[in-house]
Computed example of a mutant assay.
Amino acid sequence: MPADDPRATLCNDENRIVVPIIEETLDVRKRIVETGKVRITKTVTEREEVVDIPFLRTEVDVRHVPIDRFVDAAPPIRHEGDVMIIPVMEEVLVVEKRLKLKEEIHVTHRQTEYHDTQTVVLRRESVSEDRVVSADYGEQSISSS
Rank of each mutant, 00 (worst) to 15 (best):
Y137C: 05
T117Y: 03
K102N: 07
E103N: 12
F70N: 06
D4R: 02
T35P: 02
V51Y: 02
V62D: 03
M89N: 01
E125D: 03
E48W: 09
R131P: 01
K37Q: 14
D13F: 03
V83A: 09
L56H: 05
R47C: 06
E129A: 10
K100D: 06
A8C: 00
N15W: 04
M1R: 12
R110I: 10
S128K: 12
E23F: 11
R57V: 15
P54Y: 01
D72V: 09
P75R: 00
V19P: 01
D13Q: 03
E46Y: 15
E125A: 05
V133D: 04
H79Y: 13
R110E: 03
I77T: 15
I142D: 05
E49K: 08
T45A: 11
R63L: 05
P75S: 00
V107C: 02
K102P: 00
L10E: 15
V88L: 13
I40Y: 13
S144N: 11
L122R: 12
I77D: 06
Q140I: 10
T108C: 05
I67E: 06
A73Q: 11
T119K: 05
V88D: 05
P66N: 03
P6I: 05
P2D: 08
V44T: 11
R69H: 10
V71G: 00
L56W: 07
H79D: 12
R98P: 00
E46A: 14
R123N: 08
V60H: 06
H64C: 10
V38Y: 05
I22N: 04
F70T: 10
V92T: 10
I105K: 10
G138I: 02
R123S: 07
R78K: 13
D130C: 11
G138W: 00
M1T: 12
H79W: 14
L101Q: 13
K30T: 13
S128Y: 07
V71Y: 00
P54L: 02
V132P: 02
A73W: 05
A135C: 09
I86M: 08
E91Y: 07
H109Y: 10
T58M: 06
I105F: 01
E104V: 13
T45P: 02
T43Y: 09
V92Y: 03
A74F: 01
L122H: 13
T108F: 04
V65P: 01
S141A: 12
R131L: 14
V92L: 06
M1I: 08
E113Q: 01
